[in-house]
Amino acid sequence: MRLGAFVTLLRVRALPVIAVLLGILVLWYLGAVWLNAAFAYDAAARSGTELSFSEMIAQTMSQKRPVLPAPHQVAAEMWKTIVEIAPTSKRSLLYHSGITLSSTLLGFVLGTALGIALAIGIVHSRVLDRSLMPWIITSQTIPILAIAPMIIVIFASQGITGLLPKAFISMYLSFFPVAVGMVKGLRSPDAMHLDLMRTYSSSKLQTLLKLRLPAAMPFLFASMKVGVAISLVGAIIGELPTGAVAGLGARLLAGSYYGQTVQIWSALMTAAILAAVLVILIDIASRAVTARMGARP
């Protein structure tokens, strides 16, 4: 019975996703052949040889600086730079991911804390609500990432480099979704429940801790997912103007300077995996918390 349910789940949920992923992989290979063919023919014409169709296909899969590297080239590069090279080496992607991840997480934690604090203030004070909330929403429409390089340079001119400026950008980006989501969440309890708390003659703090915060949990986790994804983007963008020293963003920039497409794609894939893992971790935490709070799936 349980096995049967599991198989159905697998068929209904997993099969379409796997099919779509396979489709993307096939499209990627076709794209690699299509985009790299010109270079392959060009090289053959210069060396005065004729290329058969199958030779051309083989050529497009193994160029050193392809226009679009084939998936297995990216995978091989990632295997080489993640597993084979020691994580302490500057050529290891783990080393760069670690740097990006540390500023992402620091910024994300600070941003989440700031967002929650702001939301609690907004929910409890009418002045803050009326005056701050429109500005929080307006600031969402401003491309904050655009000032990332300026923040880095300003911090650097004051002698602060490394983790903190990047974490600051991540914090700046991640506090908005958390603040907006938490305001919604802290206001989500029914009027009935709030009235019940009042009949218990509970203080504002008790209402906050026992009713508002638990009610806000689903909202918090939903906005944390957005927040952690955007924190990672912020950290990567923050690494661009530092002169390509370390981190996934620096890897991207260095790759684009030297035309190392395989390196760009592997850095990009690593960033994607990192983002996916972070989002999935938050999803797991969210499930655990809501299950602990007695929610039924």
Binding site: V12, R13, L15, P16, V17, I18, A19, V20, L21, I24, L145, K225, V226, A229, L232, V233, I236, I237, L248, G249, L252, L253, G255, S256, T261, I264, W265, A267, L268, A271, A272, A275, A276, V279
Partner: peptide, 23 residues
């Protein structure tokens, strides 16, 4: 296709797509 694309699309929306800029 919808059942396959919806989760994948949701995940891709969370990825740092901006990194494709150099490419």
């Amino acid at each position: 296709l919808r059942a396959g694309l919806l989760p994948v699309g949701n995940l891709v929306s969370a990825l740092p797509i901006i990194g494709i800029a150099p490419i």
